[in-house]
């Protein structure tokens, strides 16, 4: 039995993520909510959903999950939305906050870079451009629509980390992949059948990691 630990730091749409994972896992998997470090030690897979502000998220994670970064580097990992953004070096949210620096690049405010008539948050369905073929994209056509809700965007600077990009007046990184770390800006748990397929692909991919 493999345990998928979904990290709870009190401000994400945890329940939607749990419900969608429950839909795609088979009987060899067990889902649990992790409230502190000891809950993730034995987990086979880690999922970090996210909503809210980067600063308070990082503060809460630092106090409840002090060794989270080590676990992220050593277990199959899925980060969603804020759980994607905090993997970068720095977020300009809340006057600038240092993040996990697992992926090179920064997280910036759409409002500082796009025209005034573009609506922020970037909310709704947008195209995800796959940068290369991967098992994570199995049965998902290139340029499929996924559901986004965010005001800050990330841009990865190491080309090989970019699994997909998207455009909202400017081009930004919408999914990254590095070793055992997979994360996306959009919400697979709210992206209908392609979203469920991606979650299912994540489980399949994790089984192939050595």
């Amino acid at each position: 039995m493999k345990n998928i630990a979904v990290i709870d730091y009190g401000m994400s749409n945890l329940h939607s993520v749990l419900k969608s994972l429950k839909k795609v896992i088979n009987k060899n998997y067990n889902l649990s909510i992790a409230y502190s470090s000891k809950d993730i030690e034995d987990a086979s897979l880690l999922v970090l959903p996210g909503q809210g502000a980067a600063h308070s998220c990082l503060e809460k994670l630092a106090s409840d999950f002090p060794d989270l970064k080590t676990h992220i580097m050593n277990k199959p990992f899925l980060g969603i939305c804020l759980g994607f953004q905090i993997l970068f070096e720095k977020s300009f949210e809340n006057d600038g906050v240092n993040c996990f620096s697992l992926i090179t690049g920064d997280v910036k405010d759409f409002r500082s870079t796009i025209k005034k008539d573009m609506k922020v948050p970037h909310m709704g369905w947008n195209k995800v451009n796959q940068k290369y073929n991967h098992i994570l994209w199995e049965n998902i056509p290139d340029k499929s629509f996924f559901y986004f809700v965010h005001s800050y965007y990330a841009k990865a600077t190491t080309e090989t980390n970019i699994l997909s990009d998207s455009d909202y007046e400017i081009n930004f990184t919408s999914a990254i992949l590095k070793d055992n770390i997979f994360a996306c800006q959009f919400h697979p748990e709210k992206s209908s059948k392609h979203g469920l397929q991606l979650l299912s692909n994540f489980i399949n991919w994790s089984e192939k990691l050595t």
């Binding site: 909310m123 909202y168 007046e169």
Partner: peptide
């Protein structure tokens, strides 16, 4: 490029 118009 913008987001798709939604039908609800």
């Amino acid at each position: 490029m913008s987001v798709a118009k939604r039908i609800i």
